[in-house]
Write a protein that binds this DNA or RNA. Structure first.
Lengths: 167, 167
DNA sequence: CGTCTAGTTCGGTTTGTTCCGAACTAACAT
DNA sequence: ATGTTAGTTCGGAACAAACCGAACTAGACG
């Protein structure tokens, strides 16, 4: 019973790990650490736990743990009379992620505007040659999409603000 | 006048290049090639052009050009009595990109469902200990967001299907 | 004081990525 | 046949990322 849950947990650590590795641009072990911390929840995880469970060296865990703290993805609490640090996720990691998405979309929007602008200039220099002209409607559609997606994500942000949560 | 446009073009190649490097997971030169092809448009670009304009070796251009063809990002046409290949973007690169987004969101959705499921199991094993229970509303909000974003991107897909375009 | 715990720092190995040059090929032209 | 054009292929240099082990440190405890 307990072993089943543990196995399930570790298989989720791998799955979530791969996902976070890509989404957050983290090294494999760093992503596993974050996944393990997420899946352990409020009771927290220690340095030692992770060394044994994730089968990585102390130096690797140390480095990545510090890195994740620098990125504000995780925080720790302590217990009186216990020198260990208990790591849990920083609860605004989700808000951070949402803000990253919004920023990414704004950048993409900017690029589309610049591309469209450039293409319009070129088109105006080729009034004669209709065949070689760029088609611009794509950029307008894409910008419309970005605006829609941004609206969705901003709704999510609002929902989260009204909610105490814990990934 | 012509020089200004050329400078503007190359600075956009760099900007779009960086963007594509991340978005499409391409090597720097591969992303520049794709950006240059996009910004050159219907008249197409040749191997030689890119060797000189992007300041890269023939082997580099050759490898990346083949890679981009394997990925279905670019295609070429030829002119009778001219052995050169004229590269242009594959017009369904955009649809490909949209399908990738949809897939990515579906995967993310799946992960949230799995996480929620796991956390529910754990919560049920801790009926006594309310403090350590996971909060699950976040996953529901996130899934709602994904559904919203997916709807936006599917609208974009429909708009594009009704439109002949050219990035 | 020495010892234990909890973690850090440093140097090095392994592995992977990105690009290059030189030698090659295939097809056409003279 | 010899050259030219338009590329391809291969080996390797240069650099970067990811991880490890061993030696170290800072504080608590006896």
């Amino acid at each position: 019973m307990k072993e089943e849950i543990c196995q399930k947990k570790m298989s989720l650590v791998e799955k979530l790990g791969v996902h976070l590795e890509n989404r957050e641009q983290l090294a494999p072990v760093a992503a596993r650490i974050l996944a393990y911390i997420i899946l352990t929840g409020k009771k927290g995880t220690t340095f030692e736990d992770m060394v044994t469970i994730l089968c990585a060296s102390k130096s690797t865990i140390s480095t990545h743990l510090n890195h994740l703290q620098d990125l504000n993805k995780i925080v720790y609490f302590t217990k009186t009379g216990d020198r260990k640090k208990y790591f849990v996720i920083n609860k605004d990691m989700v808000v951070q992620h949402i803000d990253n998405m919004i920023n990414k979309w704004n950048e993409e929007r900017e690029i589309h505007l610049e591309l469209k602008n450039y293409k319009e200039t070129i088109n105006n220099n080729k009034i004669d040659n209709e065949d070689e002209k760029f088609d611009l409607s794509f950029h307008d559609d894409y910008i419309k999409f970005i605006d829609g997606a941004t609206a969705s994500v901003e709704e999510l942000r609002t929902n989260l603000a009204n909610n105490k949560f814990n990934i």
